[in-house]
Computed example of a mutant assay.
Amino acid sequence: MRGSPPNRRRFLLGALGGIGGALSGCSLLHDPKPAVVLESVSVRNLDDEAHTIEAEVIRNETTVARKTVHVTAMKSERHPASSTLGVVADDLKSEPAVYELRTKLAQEGTWHEVSAKSRSSEQRVRYEIRITESGSLEVWSSFSPR
């Protein structure tokens, strides 16, 4: 009948179509992961206790470096200050790619993930995984011109 209210099926299909259309626009709100030039990933221990971390560097969804790094305590008298530093990766290719960094303290089960971002396409990025004075992880970045 013309002019009669739509049946339940048409109503539900219309509602689902509207929801699908609304949700499809959500993908436009997220920026794709940027391609960057990643120079290196290092570890620095600022804690008074020694730590072991596990780290992975992923380029374009492929793991290119996986390393376990042990760093001594910051105020250790038995070890020089240089042993509070460690390198995860420093021989990365120089062309831009999409990079992700996964890291965790070896004794923990939770991975921390960071997508590499640059301030502009003309910069190189270096990441430093820091073990803070409280023993937690932070990821710091520094930028340099190409």
Results as ranks from 00 to 15, higher is better:
E77A: 15
A116G: 14
C26T: 15
S136L: 09
E77G: 09
E54C: 07
I131H: 03
A15C: 12
H112G: 00
L101K: 01
V37K: 06
I19G: 08
S134A: 14
R130D: 05
S121Q: 14
K75G: 06
L16D: 05
G135M: 10
P32H: 09
V69M: 03
D91N: 15
A116I: 11
K67C: 01
T103I: 08
S120D: 15
F11K: 15
E39K: 12
Q123M: 14
I131K: 02
I19K: 05
V57H: 00
T72K: 06
A15W: 12
T84P: 02
G25S: 11
R102M: 10
H70L: 05
R102F: 11
T84G: 06
G21N: 11
V36Y: 02
P80Q: 06
E49V: 09
S82K: 04
E108I: 03
N60S: 14
G17V: 10
E128Y: 00
H79R: 10
Y99Q: 03
S82I: 08
D48Q: 13
N45S: 08
H79M: 10
E95L: 12
L29Q: 09
L12D: 02
R66P: 02
A73N: 03
T103K: 00
D31Y: 04
L101H: 01
S40I: 00
H112L: 11
A116C: 14
